[in-house]
Design a protein around this nucleic acid. Sequence first.
DNA 1: GTAGCATGGTAAG
DNA 2: TTACCCTGCTACG
Length: 282
Amino acid sequence: MPEGHTIHRLARDHGEWFAGRKVHVASPQGRFAAAAAQLDGRRLVATDAFGKHLFHRYDDGRSVHIHLGLFGKVFHHRLEPRTAPPPPRDTVRYRVHANGRDGGHGIDLVGATACELLDEPQVDAIVARLGPDPIRDDADPERAWAALQRRSVGIGRALMDQAVLAGVGNVYRAEVLFVHGLHPEVPAREVERATWDAMWATLVAWLRRGVKERRIVTMDPKELGKPRSRIRRAEATYVYHQAACRRCGTPVRRWDLAGRWAYACETCQPPPRGSRTRRSRR
DNA sequence: GTAGCATGGTAAG
DNA sequence: TTACCCTGCTACG
């Protein structure tokens, strides 16, 4: 499930399995077949992630650009030494595998919004329109702050705007706003600098941990009274997908915010004066 | 078996 | 703001 942590995890895994190796590339589903034919047998040089965008860089200087969208998935299969990969399901748009004496790995990309072969300027253009990515060491939080000042929308929308910062999705948005006591409708420009700095720090910590743990856990284990490893998915968040605030018990309000569900505990996150939160449903 | 949902994003109006 | 793209999985009968 793709927020930034998922994509960085894929980049890391794929780098480990394929970087520096000649790979087999195919497109059983067909839509990426022409590109796959050009890449098959080439060396995959490196993998990289910016926000929710994943890149496989090949030795001809071009890159496969992948964006999972809402329901893209990457399946992984381990390969016994010198065996062929299993037959793919017919929806696999991009298959990569590499095998040898010591065995290997294969991946199947399915349902992605974007899977395209790009040259370097095209890759640069995509990266250039993204805000800083809290997972990356080279991220400049100052750029995110500056972008925030130029937004005339609520902080809830601004956080999902990948040009402000890259990698945050609906879960991290709901949760980081909760933890910092901010209602999604608070104007982005009215968020205090100190609050924003603290939010950035939270996101850096959460996203990086998400890469490691391969899942989103925003609930503090101490607050839950059990070790992090035993936290189940349903209890990993404070307000996201929750009926009631896991801190104070107030019913969680859920409403449509630009086509996505927003979640808030309006006790812990007081709505700004005059905000008109549409009535929550279900 | 199948409706409904999902952690996104873009282009058109 | 709306329409549309992409598919797997779960919760129900």
